[in-house]
Simulated scan of single mutants.
Amino acid sequence: MVRLYTNDLNISYGERLIVKDLSVDIPDKKITTIIGSNGCGKSTLLKAITRIISHQSGAVVLDGANISKENTKILAKKMAILPQTPESASGLTVGELVSYGRFPYQKGFGRLTKKDYEVIDWSLEVTGISDFKFRPVDSLSGGQRQRVWIAMALAQETDIIFLDEPTTYLDMAHQLEVLELLQKLNLEQDRTIVMVLHDLNQAARFADYIIALKDGEIVKAGNCEEVIKHDVLRKVFNIDAEIGRDPRTNKPMCVTYNLVKGDFLHEEDNYPLYSAAGASN
């Protein structure tokens, strides 16, 4: 059974249609990565699935219910999102910021319970930042701050976590640190992870399922072997890519590429847009 899927989803900003008739299943307890060029609708799709923005038609369905009609606190107990640019945490300690993840469970005056404190401490421990609990968030490095935001998402105790470009502005070591943490959460706790990534090789290395978007439509969705391919990348990114094998994981990787000049999509090059055959209805 698929817990989360979209059905004929259309999302617009004003008169501009960004996502078009998009139907796709999100595999449960797997890592799904959304890839595509800037402005193709990756972040827009993520925001619509998590109800940060509304969609014009179609549906996002979670556990058999249309999320547009779901109670906010109930939805917040099922899915958490780490946006591309989290709101400022100026003046907050690490523990205080992580405690915000307990909002869906608070009643009355919103005082934290013993259970809340236990979950907060667990989230800090899992993400390896227990020693920073009383330190100001502003005093941490980029990678450490990203771990704090992930800890806040974990404190929501949701089965599904969405992340919009979680490695942005991080150096290579901290990018790997964050992605390995997310992989650990998936493997050890069965968390469903859905994230937007720009780096194709990171997507291939860490994702079980990849959704490749172009102009608000799915070009291809599947495992890395099905998506990280010359013809798919040509269609999605307008690049002529050389695909090799990662010597450590044996997964496909983009070794090098050139821009395709001029009218790169001739009739014989057309790659059919993805059809969500078997998508839930």
Rank of each mutant, 00 (worst) to 15 (best):
T6F: 10
N7R: 15
E15M: 10
E15D: 15
E15V: 09
E15Q: 14
L17N: 14
D21A: 07
I31L: 14
T32H: 06
T32R: 04
S37A: 15
N38W: 01
G41K: 01
G41R: 00
G41H: 02
K47M: 11
I49P: 00
I49Y: 04
I52H: 03
I52C: 03
I53H: 01
I53G: 05
S54A: 08
S54F: 10
H55E: 11
H55P: 10
S57F: 08
D63H: 05
D63N: 15
G64Y: 02
G64C: 05
G64P: 11
I67P: 01
K69N: 14
T72E: 09
K73S: 14
I74G: 00
K78G: 05
M79E: 05
L82D: 08
E87K: 09
S88I: 12
L92C: 07
T93F: 01
G95P: 00
G95W: 02
E96A: 12
E96I: 09
V98N: 02
V98E: 03
G101R: 05
G101E: 05
R102W: 10
P104M: 13
Q106A: 10
K107P: 01
K107C: 04
G108D: 00
F109D: 01
R111A: 02
T113R: 06
K114T: 14
K115M: 12
K115H: 10
K115C: 01
D116N: 08
Y117G: 00
E118C: 01
E118F: 05
V119M: 15
I120K: 01
S123L: 07
S123A: 15
E125C: 06
V126H: 01
R135D: 04
P136W: 10
P136M: 12
D138F: 02
S139Q: 12
L140S: 07
G143V: 06
G143A: 13
Q144D: 10
Q146M: 05
Q146K: 05
V148C: 06
W149S: 03
A151C: 10
Q156N: 09
I161D: 12
L163Y: 01
D164W: 03
E165Y: 02
P166N: 13
T168A: 15
H174M: 11
Q175E: 12
E177N: 14
V178M: 11
L179P: 00
L182E: 06
L187M: 09
T192G: 03
L197C: 08
D199E: 14
L200V: 04
A203L: 02
R205N: 14
F206M: 09
F206Q: 07
A207T: 07
D208G: 14
D208P: 13
Y209D: 12
Y209T: 11
I211H: 04
I211M: 08
A212F: 00
D215H: 14
D215L: 09
D215I: 04
G222D: 04
C224Q: 13
I228R: 07
I228E: 00
K229S: 13
D231V: 02
D231F: 05
V232E: 00
K235A: 11
D240R: 06
D240F: 04
D246M: 12
N250D: 15
P252D: 02
P252G: 12
V260M: 15
H266K: 14
D269H: 13
L273K: 13
Y274A: 08
